[in-house]
């Protein structure tokens, strides 16, 4: 599996550390129902068979967090953007991104 780092170009996945689903959003701790929302944020995952947007950390390269879109059934990597670009583009609009 090779991951196209937006900074470094295509690199072996072994250079990266995996974090997981990039679409879960840290809830507002002061909002009503925060306890339940935090449980969902920390524990519950869509875990799709198919396209998955996920955080990887390029430890053996630029040391940036990036968001990779990958097919969990075939391991095909569709593309990658920086975590920042992902957030700004509205990628964090919730778990629907992984639906």
């Amino acid at each position: 599996m090779r991951i196209p780092c937006p900074h470094c170009g295509e690199r072996d996945h072994a250079e990266f550390v995996y974090r997981g689903d990039a679409t879960v959003v840290r809830p507002d701790p002061d909002a009503p129902g925060a306890a339940r929302a935090f449980h969902e944020f920390v524990h519950l995952r869509t875990n799709p068979a198919g396209l998955h947007k996920e955080h990887w950390y390029h430890e053996g390269g630029c040391r940036a967090w990036i968001v990779v879109e990958r097919n969990t059934v075939t391991h095909e990597v569709m593309g990658a953007v920086t975590a920042e670009a992902f957030a700004l583009s509205g990628g964090l609009s919730g778990r629907k991104a992984n639906a």
Binding site: D21, R45, T46, N47, T72
Partner: peptide, 18 residues
């Protein structure tokens, strides 16, 4: 390993990753 895919059909979201 396919628990999520099956339980999706019952509308359940689980503390599981495959």
């Amino acid at each position: 390993g396919n628990t999520t895919r099956v339980m999706d059909k019952a509308g359940l979201r689980l503390p599981i990753e495959s």
